[in-house]
Design a protein around this nucleic acid. Sequence first.
DNA 1: CGAGAGCTTGATGAACATCAAGAGGCGTGG
DNA 2: CCACGCCTCTTGATGTTCATCAAGCTCTCG
Lengths: 248, 248
Amino acid sequence: MPLDPDHHALSLLVRKLGSIAALTDGERQAILSVPSKTRLLNAGQDIVRDGDKPSQCCLILDGWACRYKIIGEGKRQIFSFHIPGDIPDLQSLHLHTMDHSLGTITQATVAFIPHESMRELSTRFPRIGEVLWRDTLVDAAIFREWMIGMGRKSAFGRIAHLFCEMYLKLEAVGLAGEHRCPLPITQMDIGDALGLSNVHVNRVLQEMRGRSLITLRGSALVIQAWDVLIGVSEFDPTYLHLEKRAAG
Amino acid sequence: MPLDPDHHALSLLVRKLGSIAALTDGERQAILSVPSKTRLLNAGQDIVRDGDKPSQCCLILDGWACRYKIIGEGKRQIFSFHIPGDIPDLQSLHLHTMDHSLGTITQATVAFIPHESMRELSTRFPRIGEVLWRDTLVDAAIFREWMIGMGRKSAFGRIAHLFCEMYLKLEAVGLAGEHRCPLPITQMDIGDALGLSNVHVNRVLQEMRGRSLITLRGSALVIQAWDVLIGVSEFDPTYLHLEKRAAG
DNA sequence: CGAGAGCTTGATGAACATCAAGAGGCGTGG
DNA sequence: CCACGCCTCTTGATGTTCATCAAGCTCTCG
């Protein structure tokens, strides 16, 4: 089998989907034969923009991305952070106009897959379609949880919640463990995601460090007091709908 | 044709889906032959609860409902308001455990449809599956818009935005016009939806009335100054993805 | 006509935003 | 190798938007 990068890209998709529902050989083969183009992007680069009508969606192979929208005078709201294995703009498959933007946070490797192929795949293999649909539903569940944070939680609780969430998401794809994970985002990013000023984020982080709850240096997060964080943030992982399964 | 209430229920679904994508006769027939049970519910009654594993989903025929979650000590976050034609718990089709609750706001008529039938319908008629999927994606788009409000907008902007949104959603199903619509929710509900206290909601409403922007008496909202409201709330209806089409 | 839910008003305080300025890190180019 | 610039983080001072508490009012509906 040739070691070409695009094939590698799709095997990540196979693993991701296989971790949610067992795949048949036929389904596996179908996914692997989907056409895709892999590209390396710089940090801080837009992948799709508010208002675009994309004809492909993207699978993150390496690096981090986020979905966001610019509003008013320089204000920004980040809706989600995305890590390898995610398809952050899957929704564009059925919502033809982007109502927000998607951009990289770090340097990132991304595979582009034509909508046409995704639609065909979903139709020919309804089970794959269901898993993809499900993926967008988990997405929405995370939005709801962020709404709770912004509507009803303190800055401290929101930040703690975000840390727990990102840790679990990373752990689920094998990129974190032992309460350590990469977190290559600025305090500004955290603020824009949680509806806080960067100044206030900074002060909360100081407090967390002062109470020895976390270590956060460079882009490495260590959660030293997991129980405290889930306590203050009322973190309940149900909403992530991570069904533990052996990868296919 | 017999005038039985369940058949009537599904014809609403036909109209709803038909307003998004043109349906073939076969598709129409298939929808109409889906089994469903119609029930009349009181105001303030739960339909599905946080933690449940429902085996059916519901179509609202009449009245209003909302999705919400109770957190901490008596705090509540409302995620969405639902009106006739909505299927508020469609996500339970693929996310088996509810991570929030769904309840009525007013007295409501609701049709219950087995998940099994919905899944079958989606598989046999991929186009219907796509439209349903799309519906959950619009749902998520609305969540994103609410996040912007709670993260980056003033109380005034948030409330104005909610009014514009509900008006357009109601208008799209023929329940509003001429900048008038029903709004059978309390100030407490508005607060719980937007992350505000009922007291503060009250004060903002006073100001809106004082500036002759709206009239809100009983459950009737009149938007007297549409342009002002969309201005202050930076309302852009793109996110509702209302594609104007003649109903099939 | 009474009871309860929702609305209204005032007083007080807390959690945050905003503004401003400086310190530390890190890559880039001379 | 050092110097420069930029980005991020940090810290302080001040101000605003909202929450909270408490009480009285109004409307509706049984």
